[in-house]
Nucleic acid binder design. Structure first.
Length: 272
DNA sequence: ACGTAAGTTCGTAACGTCCT
DNA sequence: AGGACGTTACGAACTTACGT
């Protein structure tokens, strides 16, 4: 039987939206002409967990788009100070900072660039998984749905979305432009050199604050060495790495399950 | 030179959905 | 069913540009 469909129009660009019964959300398919989408994609690209471009925030992105200076994130790399100065809220100083920030983003590692691209269902962690598995955007672009599903943690929905993203000509062009500007679209040699399999199959929970490495670095060390970081303790947790002010409920739970609680030093010892 | 307003950063928490 | 993930929202501290 045919599912009921609901038809509405996008309040922003008045494109027709079709949603099938049972689908939780519908997205405006007008990816090229819907202004909030154009701005939103760039805002995501520059955001903290993605390319983290300092000097550029959501409002400034909207300003740049509205003034016709950029239409997608690859355009950012062609901005020059002079054309920014006439804009509201931007003067010499901010314009320089902005261009500087954009240039610095060329050093952002591949996994975050992959997240920044804005492929649906590819968030921060899925991007990491894909980056680790495929090592480069070229390899990822060649992967079929079948190959993608074989990757741990990647299901049908994500696989379909990834393949779809790369079939769009516009996306391939944008990616080529990023590549030409020197954005990291493959895992760097240094990154590869830092990776080991020491912690393969081990699952970690991190709790508290640490002195020698930051919480973020600690998680990165776990992942780079083949381990998995989870947010909550379960029977599958191998170790809890505890810093200062470890959450008391976590401590109780770990003790209850008999999971070893190790210190920052213990952990660093493990991987050295 | 100073205060204000706007924007950004950083931490956190909650919620609904997806994966296994 | 349980855990993980993506998304959104919020607030507080900090930075910067701009008007007086």
């Amino acid at each position: 039987s045919n599912p009921t469909t609901y038809i509405t129009t996008c309040p922003e660009c008045h494109t027709e939206l079709i949603r099938n019964e049972g689908e939780a959300q519908h997205y405006c398919p007008n990816t090229k002409g819907c202004p909030p989408q154009i701005i939103g994609r760039i805002q995501h690209y520059i955001s903290r967990k993605a390319m983290d471009i300092e000097g550029l925030g959501g409002e400034t992105v909207a300003l740049l788009v509205k003034n016709g200076l950029i239409k997608n994130y690859a355009d950012l790399y062609q901005l020059v100070v002079e054309e920014l100065i006439p804009l509201e809220r931007l003067a010499q100083k901010s314009a320089e900072n902005l261009v500087k920030g954009i240039n610095l983003s060329k050093e952002i590692p591949f996994e975050r660039v992959l997240f920044a691209l804005g492929i649906r269902y590819v968030g921060e962690t899925v991007a990491k998984k894909l980056a680790k598995h495929f090592k480069s955007i070229d390899a990822l672009m060649l992967a079929s749905e079948e190959e993608l599903v074989l990757v741990d943690e990647i299901g049908e929905r994500i696989a379909r979305s990834v393949v779809h993203f790369f079939t769009e000509e516009e996306n391939r062009v944008t990616i080529q432009r990023l590549k030409d500007h020197g954005v990291q679209l493959k895992i760097s040699d240094e990154q590869l050199a830092d990776q080991t399999d020491i912690l393969l199959g081990k699952s970690f929970v991190v709790s508290g604050v640490f002195t020698k490495v930051s919480r973020i670095e600690l998680k990165k060390l776990i992942e780079d060495n083949g381990g998995k970081v989870s947010s909550s303790i379960s029977g599958k947790t191998s170790f809890v790495v505890a810093g200062d002010n470890m959450g008391p409920s976590k401590r109780t739970k770990a003790e209850g399950l008999g999971i070893p609680i190790i210190s920052e030093d213990d952990f660093l010892q493990m991987i050295s």
